[in-house]
Amino acid sequence: MSEKKGLMRFLAEYDRRIIYLLIFVVVIGPLLSPFILPISVSPDTQAYYNVIDKLGPNDIVMVVFDTEFSGFMELQSGILASMRVMIEKGAKMVIAVSHPEATGIPELVLNQLADVISRKQYTYGKDYVYLGYIFPNEAAVAATAQDFHGAVRQDYYGKSIEGTLLDKVKDWSSWSLISDYTTGIQSQALINHYGLRGTPMIVNCIGVMVATQKPYVSSGIYKALLQSMRGGAELEYLIGVPGPGLTAMNSFTLGHYVLIIFIVLGNIGYFGYTRYKQKPTGG
C-alpha cells in the first residue's frame, strides 16, 4: 500500500529535471540516429505552397528575416523550402532583416540554395538584392512603405541600389508579395504599414505565435501561414526536397509524445496522491 502511495507521490511531485533529461534524450536520439516517420500535410501548408507556386518572373517579393538567429533555427526549414520555390519560379527577391543578429542569416541561406541559384542563373542585382538590417523599428518600416528610395539607398554591401531590380520599387504598392519569416519582431509593423494598405503578405512564424497570427489569415491580410518547423517540414515534403525540417520531425514527434506521457502520469499522481492529500479530514 505504502509502495503504491510512494509511486503516486513520485508521479505527483517528480523532479522537473527528469522531464528535462527525457526531453533531451528524445530530441538528441533521433538526430544522432535518424529514421523515417511518415508525416501529414496540413491545409495551411498547402495554401502557403499555392501562393508561392503562383509567383512568376514579374513578381517582386520582399523577403523579411524578422528573427534573431535563435528563432532562425525554428524557421530555417520553411525559409529554405519557400525561397527555393521562389527562385525556381524566377520571382525577384529583396531580402531585409529586422535584427542586427540576423544580418548573417541571408548569406547562410543563399549558400544552402547555391545549387538552384546556379542552375537558374539567379543573379545579384538583377534577380535579388540583400539590403541588410533596414528594419530596426516600426518607424523604419513605415518609411520604406511610404517612400522606399527615400529610406533605403544602399544594399548590405554598401553599394547603391540604383540600377538594380529595386528601380521598379516605389512604395508599399510596388511589391507583389511580402514573405515574412518571423519571431514577432516587426511583423505587426509590416502588417500596419504594408498589409493593411493592401500589399499581399505570407508568413512563416514560430510555434507559439500561430494562434495569434491566424486571425490575420482569416481577415485576408495574410494570404497564407506556415506554422513553425512543422510547416517547414511539410513544405519540404510537398516540394520533394528533404531538408532540416524533415530531419527534425522525428524529435518533434517524440518530444510531443513524451510530454503527453508526462501529462497522463502527472494526472494519475494528482488523483492518487495530491487530491487525496488535499481532502479535508474529520468532520
Binding site: R16, G184, I206, V208, M209, V210, A211, T212
Partner: peptide
C-alpha cells in the same frame, strides 16, 4: 516558479500568454 517566488507576469507578447 522553481525558486518559490510569487510570479506576476504580463502577457505583452500575446503568443506567450498561454505558456
Amino acid at each position: 516558479n522553481a525558486i518559490g517566488a510569487i510570479t506576476i507576469t504580463s502577457g505583452s507578447y500575446i503568443s506567450n500568454v498561454a505558456a
